[in-house]
């Protein structure tokens, strides 16, 4: 199973930081994601596109998480040479992540 099967996600930028908000579809999904969305697993998932730290903030009030990926946009929206200058597709890239059994 992938994150795609249990959650929605939306990403955006603040300078060279990309944030990915994750919304679990129900309580059970939220519990699975607490285990799945660790900074280590996320760092590994995004490979060399994320050069800095990864932070995960739970938002239990909405069964959600906010993930901060530091130094992840090639210098930020105004400077990056990437096609996706504002990091909008980090959301769908996260949806590819496999959930641990």
């Amino acid at each position: 199973m992938q994150v795609k099967d249990v959650a929605y996600a939306r990403s955006g930028d603040k300078g060279d930081v990309v944030n990915v908000g994750v919304l679990a579809l129900d309580d059970a999904a939220y519990k699975r994601l607490v285990v799945a969305l660790t900074p280590d697993r996320l760092k590994k998932h995004f490979g060399d596109w994320v050069r800095g730290d990864v932070e995960v903030f739970p938002m239990p009030n909405i069964n959600g998480f906010n993930i901060l990926l530091h130094n992840a946009l090639g210098g930020g929206a105004t400077k990056t040479l990437r096609y996706d200058v504002t990091g909008k597709a980090f959301s769908t890239a996260l949806l590819r992540m496999e959930l641990p059994e």
Binding site: Y8, G21, L23, P58, N66, L68
Partner: peptide
């Protein structure tokens, strides 16, 4: 869902969302 999508959009630490008018806590809102 569309409101929650916007709530988590382009934010930092949701416990302390810094704005010039104050610091909001997005981890309480219902």
């Amino acid at each position: 869902w569309t409101v929650k999508e916007q709530l988590v959009y382009e934010i930092g630490d949701p416990n302390n969302y810094f704005m010039p008018d104050g610091v909001a806590d997005f981890t309480r809102v219902k």
